[in-house]
Design a protein around this nucleic acid. Structure first.
Lengths: 219, 219
DNA sequence: CGTCAACGATAAGAATACGGATCATGGTTC
DNA sequence: GAACCATGATCCGTATTCTTATCGTTGACG
């Protein structure tokens, strides 16, 4: 269940958004000013916040200080032409922004993008005899759970999302570890080997000489 | 035709990038500060933007606000070790980043990855009876896989992208090996020969006396 | 037609990458 | 504090890949 908090003082708009998102399968809660939003945020948890910048009481910007420590992604709703608002919003850590008036489809699309970026969208990837549930972060093979470490899981996910593609060690390292890749390090190789053994991909996760590794696309 | 905008205030670097990308078949435009970049972006459309973060006038981050609504993918150029820049860049929607100083081959690879992600680039090249899948880095002939070494593959790709053109040994060496060509070395010749045998291009990949080699344009 | 440089071919040595094993470290749990 | 686990560094052996060396053949040019 994905929970979205809608913060907008214009009730008709908030209602419109809530109806659309509910239709799309999300669970929505509305707040009509900053204080109310802060209250709700203290009591409940959300996967995403849609935040109007022009709010009475506390502005959207001030509310951001509340939200940022929670690690909840935020999409700003901003009036047309308020570019400086937009710039400031992004600088304050918003994931995206939507200019009012906006199309519902556009809203849905952006919500999806942000949720996916945060792996909030329930999705099960079936590949190479494995079943990867990105929501519970569980990997099963023939119904049996395969315990993976954090790095192994992220590594697996990277390949599962890029089947058939040859991935450079640099790319792998940067995506999974997140820092500068130290050429000559065997870290990636080591984890690849461990992953191969655990999930039984000795023949599917092949090395590409001088490049890195590739998950064979099929069979 | 793929158009790339290069934004970097260090002109030698911008020029170097432009030359490399132009050689690789892209159409390039350079901007040397944020304002100029914004001007150009208003008038012309691009498939990709290479953006240096440390810019006078408007910083790369501010320019991002301009670019983001356009839906054009961005690759950040960032100084080594500036991790906070990098994180922020990715959060702001950059598709990728490259740490300066970087290898030209690496730049080309990343540009390719991003363009492919946006479906701007054909990922399969059909030439001379071969099928080259640049995503999986696989070469097939009549459906059968032809295993190539790294150097052979890069060599093949170079010719596949410049069919009919006579390529100097120097050029070949610089593109595939990446360093200075040592006149008198037979390395290039040797790899050409092996490649010819492997892919059956004994008559298609001809030598050009005193110059280098050329892939005959068609069948 | 002769000469010389350039290219093709083969073999062998050098260099390098990858897989496997082991061990040290740092964090977490009980 | 002890035990465990995740992580990553290091070493070594093997197989592949790359380069150098050498010799024979071809092609350009006067």
């Amino acid at each position: 269940m994905i929970r979205i908090l809608i913060v907008d003082d214009e009730r008709p708009i908030a209602t419109l958004i809530r109806m659309s998102l509910t239709k799309a399968g999300y669970t929505c809660v509305c707040a009509y000013d900053g204080l109310q939003a802060a209250d709700i945020l203290e009591k409940e948890t959300f996967d995403l916040v849609l935040l109007d910048i022009m709010l009475p009481g506390a502005t959207g910007f001030e509310l951001m200080d509340y939200i940022r420590p929670l690690g909840v992604p935020v999409i700003f709703l901003t009036a047309k032409g308020a570019i400086s608002d937009r710039v400031q919003g992004l600088r304050m850590g918003a994931e995206d922004y939507i200019v009012k008036p906006f199309e519902i489809v556009e809203l849905l699309a952006r919500v999806e993008v942000v949720l996916r970026r945060y792996n909030k969208l329930a999705s099960v990837i079936e590949i190479g005899g494995l079943s990867i549930d990105t929501r519970s972060m569980r990997v099963t093979k023939d119904g049996e759970d395969i315990p993976l470490t954090n790095k192994e899981y992220n590594l697996l996910l990277l390949f599962a999302r890029n089947p058939g593609a040859a991935l450079y060690r640099e790319t792998i390292y940067e995506r999974v570890w997140g820092g500068d890749y130290n050429a000559g390090s065997r870290t990636v190789d080591l984890h690849i080997q461990r992953l191969r053994k655990k999930v039984g991909w000795e023949t599917k996760l092949v090395s590409v000489h001088k490049v890195g590794y590739r998950l064979e696309a099929d069979g």
